[in-house]
C-alpha cells in the first residue's frame, strides 16, 4: 500500500534519472567537449600537460584501478622547475571515456596490454623528440602499472618513481587488498558501504550509477589513512574497470614485476607512515623486486597523502623527486 501511494504521488513529478549524465557524477570527456582530452589508442582520455613541451617529461599514473589524477595535481609544481608534467585519466577511469566491462574481461590479461598501449600512446602524444627523457611517476595501482610498463619496455623510459604500490605479484596484491580493507564488522565505515546497496542498484555497465556508488563507498579508509572528503581528492570513480581488472586479476594472477630485473635505472620508492597495511617490512618486501631502489618513508600522511598532502609534498616528496630527476 505504501509503495502504491508513493508511486501515485511521485508519478506527478518530473522524472530525474540516476543514470542521466551529469546528475550525480561529472560528465566524461566524450560527454563534455569542454574538458581537456586527447584521443589515443582508440580511446578519448582526459589529459593535461604543463611546463615546457620539450623538456624532460614526468608522466603521472594514478591509482585505483578506477581513480583519477586529481589528487596528484600537486605534481604540477614540477613544471615550475622546468619539467614537462603530463597527467591523464586511464581509460574507464576519472573523466576518461567508459568501456563495457566485457571489453576488459574478454581480453583477459590483454586488458593490461591495452593500458600499457594507452600509456605508450600518451607518451607519444606529448613527446616532441625521440631524445626527450620520460620518467613515470605511478601511485598505488599506478605504481603497479608503471612497474609493469617498465618491465615490458625497459628502454622506453629513463626513470621510475612509485608511490606505495600494494604489491607487484598477485599474491602480494591480494594480501594487501585484504589487509587494507579488513574493517570491523560493527564499524560505521563497513556499514556505510554495505547499507547503500538497498537504496541504489546499478546494472552491468550503468557507469553513472556504479561510479557514483563507488565514490560513496570510498569516502575514507581508517586503515590506509585515506580521507577522500579532503578537497581535491577525486573527480569520478571508474567502477566498471575496477571490477573488471579485479576479476582479471583473480583469474589470471598477473605479475607486474615481470621483466623489472632488466630495468637497471634506480627506482625511487615512496611509502607512507600512516598506512597501517603498509608497514616498513611490507615496503621492503615489495621494493625488493627492483634491481636498484631508494626507499623514502613519508611520515604523517596516509596512502594518497604522499602526493596529495600539500605539506608532505612540498617538504618530502617534491624535494626527493627533484633530486632523483637531477640524478638521471
Amino acid at each position: 500500500m505504501m509503495a502504491l501511494l508513493a508511486l501515485t504521488f511521485f508519478s506527478c513529478t518530473k522524472e530525474r534519472f540516476l543514470d542521466e549524465p551529469g546528475n550525480l557524477v561529472p560528465k566524461t570527456v566524450d560527454q563534455d567537449p569542454g574538458l581537456p582530452s586527447i584521443r589515443v589508442n582508440g580511446a578519448l582520455l582526459h589529459a593535461e600537460a604543463f611546463g615546457p613541451a620539450d623538456s624532460t617529461m614526468v608522466v603521472f599514473v594514478h591509482g585505483g584501478p578506477g581513480r583519477d589524477y586529481r589528487y596528484l595535481l600537486n605534481g604540477v609544481d614540477l613544471a615550475n622547475y622546468g619539467y614537462r608534467v603530463v597527467f591523464y585519466d586511464q581509460r574507464g577511469s576519472g573523466l576518461s571515456q567508459r568501456f563495457p566491462g566485457k571489453f576488459y574481461t574478454n581480453l583477459g590479461l590483454g586488458a593490461l596490454d591495452v593500458l600499457y598501449q594507452d600509456l605508450s600512446a600518451v607518451i607519444a602524444h606529448y613527446r616532441t623528440s625521440p631524445n626527450q627523457k620520460v620518467i613515470l611517476m605511478g601511485h598505488s595501482w599506478g605504481g603497479m602499472l608503471a612497474t609493469g610498463y617498465a618491465g615490458k619496455n625497459p628502454q622506453a623510459i629513463q626513470g621510475l618513481i612509485v608511490g606505495e604500490p600494494g604489491g607487484l605479484k598477485w599474491k602480494d596484491i591480494s594480501e594487501y587488498m585484504k589487509a587494507s580493507r579488513s574493517y570491523e564488522i560493527l564499524e560505521e565505515l563497513l556499514n556505510d558501504a554495505t547499507y547503500l546497496d538497498q537504496f541504489i542498484t546499478g546494472k552491468e555497465d550503468q557507469h553513472e550509477i556504479l561510479d557514483y556508488k563507488m565514490a560513496m563507498m570510498a569516502s575514507n579508509n581508517s586503515i590506509t589513512g585515506e580521507d577522500n572528503t579532503r578537497p581535491g581528492s577525486f573527480w569520478r570513480s571508474g567502477a566498471v574497470i575496477m571490477g573488471a581488472l579485479q576479476e582479471i586479476g583473480k583469474e589470471h594472477q598477473p605479475d607486474f614485476s615481470a621483466g623489472i630485473s632488466s630495468f637497471q635505472t634506480p627506482v625511487l620508492f615512496f611509502y607512507s607512515g600512516k598506512n597501517a597495511a603498509y608497514p616498513d617490512a611490507w615496503a621492503q618486501k615489495i621494493s625488493a623486486a627492483y634491481p636498484m631502489v631508494n626507499l623514502i618513508k613519508v611520515n604523517g600522511v596516509g596512502h594518497p597523502g604522499i602526493v596529495h598532502d600539500r605539506n608532505a609534498w612540498t617538504t618530502i616528496t617534491l624535494p626527493a623527486i627533484l633530486q632523483y630527476l637531477q640524478s638521471l
Partner: peptide, 15 residues
C-alpha cells in the same frame, strides 16, 4: 568534488 551534482527526488526506481 562535483559542484553541479543535482539534489532532489530521483525516480523512477533507484534500486
Amino acid at each position: 568534488i562535483y559542484a553541479r551534482v543535482v539534489d532532489g527526488w530521483y525516480e523512477p526506481a533507484s534500486g
